[in-house]
Structure formats: C-alpha cells, structure tokens
C-alpha cells in the first residue's frame, strides 16, 4: 500500500514561495492562473494490511511531525495495489 500526503499552508498564512512562482509565471507570459500554492508532497510506502491501519499511520505521522498544526493542513490519498 502506498500513500501520497499533501501538506499546504492554512488559508491566511503567507505562502511566499507560491507568490514568487506565481509572479514568475506571469512574467514569462503565461496567462490564466488565478492562484497558486506551493506545499509539500510526501510519498510513503506502507507496511500494513488494512486501510484503517494505513490511515492511522498517516494521520499520526502528520499530526506528530509532518505538518505544523499552527500553520499547515494536510490531506492524503491511499493507493491500494
């Protein structure tokens, strides 16, 4: 089982990297981008047999280390093979 975990800033937290990249895209003439956010993507290979266990591992990892609850939110997808 694999998981892809996405960590992004909460609404209202400045995303300076997203802002700069957004301006850079504008400056090279790419139109039609309304907003852009840059976060982190963690790919995880899991050693467990049920989806419930996978959820437990992913959520504990996010809450304890991967995301900062003060400034970030996380979501994830589980890829069952």
């Amino acid at each position: 089982m694999k998981a892809k975990i996405y960590i992004n800033y909460k609404d209202g937290i400045l995303d300076p990297e997203g802002l700069i990249v957004s301006k850079a895209l504008q400056s090279i003439g790419i139109k039609g981008i309304k907003d852009l956010a840059i976060g982190k993507c963690v790919e995880m290979e899991l050693d467990c047999s049920t989806k419930e266990e996978a959820i437990e591992i992913i959520e504990t990892s996010c809450v304890k280390l991967l995301a900062n609850p003060n400034t970030e939110i996380f979501n994830y997808q589980i890829i069952e093979e």
């Binding site: 937290i13 400045l14 300076p16 990297e17 802002l19 700069i20 900062n68 003060n70 400034t71």
Partner: peptide
C-alpha cells in the same frame, strides 16, 4: 507558542 514561518520576502 506560535510558529516561525518563512520571511515574507522569502
């Protein structure tokens, strides 16, 4: 308490 995030000018 709080958090330290990237400088506003990056």
């Amino acid at each position: 308490p709080g958090a330290l995030i990237t400088n506003n000018h990056t």
